[in-house]
Design a protein around this nucleic acid. Structure first.
Lengths: 156, 156
DNA sequence: GCGAAATTGATTTACGTTATCAAATTGTAA
DNA sequence: TTACAATTTGATAACGTAAATCAATTTCGC
C-alpha cells in the first residue's frame, strides 16, 4: 500500500470515530465526498465549487450544500484545513500528517501556490506560545511575493 | 511630539506623495478618514463597518463606499495592512513602521487578538524565500489557540 | 419494521464587498 | 478667476460566497 493510501485510511478512521462520538450518521454522500477529497486532492488546495463540480461528474445527485457541510465536518474533526489566500474563496486541503505542518508561498503575479515546511519556524512558534502562556492549536503562515518564474519574466 | 504623532506625520507624507505621484486628488473625506484611522486605531484591528460607524458620529455626510475605497488606497500606498482572522470580515490596521513586522495570536475562545514580533521568525522567512528564489513582499502569520485567561477559566 | 433524529438538496436568505452612475468637487491651464 | 477635464463622492444596485431554511428522505437504535 502506498503512503498516501495509508494516510487516507488513517483519516477515514478519524472521521468514522468522530461520526460515532458525535452520534452523527454515516451516509453515502459523505463517503463519496470523502473518497473524492482524499483520493484526488492530497497536497492540493481546492475550493468548494471545484470539488463540487468534480464530484458532480460521477455523482450528479449530490448537492452543493452537502459538499459545503461535509468539508466543514472534515475541519471539525481535524482531517482538513481551511485557507484563505485573499481571493475571497475559501480553499480546503486534506491534512497530510499531524506532525508535519507546512505553509504557503503565494505569487502575487501568477497566483501559483508553493508549499514549504520549516522546522525552525515551528520551534520558534512553540517558544513564542510558551512564553505567552498561549495554548497553540494551529497556525497559518503565508508569504506573498514574486516567484522565480515571474521575476525572470519581469526583468526580461 | 509623541512617537505616535511622528509616525502619523510620516504616514501622512507617504499618502500625500502617493496622491501626487498617481495624480489623484486630495479631498476632505480622505483627510477625515486618514485622521480617524491613524488617530484612533494605531495598534488596533478595525473593520470597515466599525470605522465607518465611528466616523459617522462626527461626520454624518461621509459615505460607506468612500471609507472602503480610502482604506484600499491606504493599502496601495503601504500605510495600512489588511488581515483576515476567519470571521468573514476584513480588518485594517495602520502600519507602525516599515521595519518591525508583527504577527497575531487569536484566541479561539474569547476572540481576543494578541500581537507579537519575533526577529528569529523574520530571518527564517527571509532564508526560506532566498532558498526558493522567491522575492518576498509581505507575509502573514497567525497563531490560533487558547489564551492564558481562557485556559485558566476552562480548568477552573 | 418502527420511530426518533439526522441528513439531504433545492432554494432562499444573509452579508461583505464591489460596481455603477449622476452629481459634486478638485486641479490645471488659460 | 474662469473654464474644463478628470477624479471623487455617495446612494444604491449588483455580485459572490457562505449560511439558513425546510420538507422529504435516510439512517440507526430498539
Amino acid at each position: 500500500m502506498t503512503p498516501v493510501a495509508i494516510r487516507k485510511m488513517e483519516r477515514r478512521k478519524t472521521f468514522n470515530d468522530y461520526i460515532a462520538k458525535k452520534r452523527l450518521k454515516s451516509t453515502k454522500q459523505r463517503d463519496i465526498i470523502f473518497d473524492e477529497f482524499f483520493g484526488n486532492y492530497m497536497g492540493k488546495h481546492v475550493t468548494v465549487e471545484e470539488l463540487y463540480e468534480d464530484i458532480k461528474k460521477r455523482h450528479p445527485f449530490i448537492g452543493f450544500a452537502t459538499v459545503y457541510r461535509t468539508l466543514k465536518l472534515f475541519m471539525e474533526c481535524g482531517i482538513a484545513s481551511e485557507r484563505n489566500f485573499g481571493d475571497g474563496k475559501a480553499r480546503y486541503e486534506p491534512i497530510h500528517s499531524e506532525r508535519e505542518h507546512h505553509h504557503h508561498m503565494i505569487c502575487n503575479e501568477c497566483g501559483k501556490i508553493y508549499e514549504f515546511a520549516n522546522i525552525q519556524v515551528e520551534s520558534c512558534l512553540n517558544q513564542i506560545a510558551k512564553l505567552n502562556e498561549f495554548q497553540l492549536t494551529n497556525h497559518k503562515l503565508e508569504i506573498y511575493g514574486l516567484c522565480s518564474g515571474c521575476r525572470a519574466a519581469r526583468t526580461a
